[in-house]
C-alpha cells in the first residue's frame, strides 16, 4: 500500500490521538491543585449562585413550572440553560489559542491540526457531562423526569458537533488572523444576552423600535440549542419539527464551514505559526 506523506485525514482514524490530547488537557488542568477536580464544579456553581441571587431574588424573575406541573425553581431552570452555554463558552475560549500553543509540536511532527482542538473539546465535554448528570439527579429529586429525556443524546450529538466544528474553524482562522480571539471575546459577551439563558424567550418583545428582537434571538443557534435542552429536560416537552430541522441545519452549516476552513487554511498550520 502506497500513500502520500500524510495519511488519510478522517477524525475517526485519529480518535486515539484526540483522546490522548483530551487526557492531556484533563490531567494538566488541575494538576498541582489541592482540590483538583472539585474546582471544575466550583466555577459553574458560583455562576449559578450569583445569577440565581441577582435574577430571582432581586429582579424576581419567575421560572416556568416543572414538566410535572410543580412550581418552578429558578436555580434549577437557570442551571439547565447555563450548562450548554458554559460548554460553548469554555470550548470556544479554550480552542482559540490551542493551535498557537501547539506550535512547536506542529512544526516537528505531523498530525492533523484539528486533533488538539477536538481533544480540548472532548476534555470540556467530560466536565459538562458531569454537570448534566448532576442536573439530572436534581431534576429527579424534584420528581421531574419523563420520556423526553430519551431524546437528550440526540440533542447532545447535534450540539456537541456544532460546537466542535465551530471551534475547529475559529481556532484555525485564529492562526492567520490574530484579532479573531478578541473579536470572539466581544461576540461571546453579546451572545450571552442574546441567548435566552437568564430570561425566557417569551419575555422578549416581538418588536422594539421596529427591530424584530424576538426573531433575532430565535435565529441565534445557541438559543435553539439551549431552549431544546430546557424543553427536553425541564419542561418535558418535545420541540416541534422545525426546531429539530433548525438544529440539523446549524450543525450542517458548522461542519461545512469547518471542512472549508480546514481545507483552505488548516493543512499548512505547521509553516504558518
Amino acid at each position: 500500500m502506497t500513500s502520500s506523506a500524510r495519511p488519510n485525514a478522517s477524525p475517526w482514524r485519529y480518535r486515539s490521538l484526540i483522546w490522548n490530547f483530551a487526557q492531556r488537557d484533563l490531567k494538566s488542568r488541575f494538576k498541582g491543585t489541592a482540590l483538583g477536580w472539585a474546582w471544575s464544579l466550583m466555577l459553574p456553581l458560583a455562576t449559578l449562585l450569583t445569577y440565581s441571587l441577582v435574577f430571582s431574588v432581586i429582579f424576581r424573575l419567575q421560572p416556568p413550572d416543572f414538566g410535572n406541573g410543580r412550581a418552578g425553581f429558578f436555580p434549577v431552570w437557570l442551571w439547565a440553560g447555563l450548562i450548554p452555554w458554559t460548554f460553548f463558552l469554555i470550548t470556544v475560549s479554550v480552542a482559540m489559542p490551542t493551535l498557537l500553543a501547539s506550535g512547536p509540536m506542529l512544526q516537528k511532527v505531523y498530525f492533523p491540526s484539528y486533533a488538539p482542538i477536538l481533544g480540548g473539546v472532548t476534555a470540556i465535554l467530560v466536565q459538562s457531562a458531569i454537570e448534566l448528570a448532576l442536573l439530572g439527579a436534581v431534576l429527579i429529586l424534584f420528581g421531574s423526569i419523563g420520556p423526553t429525556w430519551l431524546l437528550l443524546p440526540l440533542w447532545a450529538v447535534f450540539f456537541v458537533t456544532f460546537v466542535a466544528a465551530l471551534s475547529v474553524s475559529l481556532a484555525i482562522m485564529n492562526v492567520y488572523y490574530r484579532d479573531l480571539a478578541h473579536l470572539v471575546n466581544v461576540a461571546l459577551q453579546l451572545l450571552f444576552y442574546l441567548t435566552p439563558i437568564i430570561y425566557q424567550i417569551s419575555l422578549v418583545p416581538e418588536s422594539w423600535h421596529g427591530i424584530p428582537l424576538q426573531t433575532i434571538v430565535r435565529l441565534n443557534p445557541l438559543a435553539l440549542f439551549v431552549d431544546t435542552l430546557r424543553a427536553l429536560a425541564y419542561d418535558l416537552k418535545v420541540p416541534d419539527i422545525w426546531t429539530w430541522l433548525g438544529m440539523v441545519a446549524w450543525t450542517a452549516c458548522a461542519i461545512g464551514l469547518a471542512i472549508l476552513v480546514y481545507r483552505s487554511h488548516g493543512l499548512d498550520i505547521g509553516e504558518s505559526i
Binding site: 502506497t2 500513500s3 506523506a5 500524510r6 512544526q107 516537528k108
Partner: peptide, 15 residues
C-alpha cells in the same frame, strides 16, 4: 517527507 509541510508541487509517496 514527514508530511509536516505539503509540497508546493511534485509528489511524495511513502510506503
Amino acid at each position: 517527507l514527514a508530511g509536516i509541510y505539503r509540497p508546493t508541487s511534485g509528489l511524495v509517496e511513502v510506503n
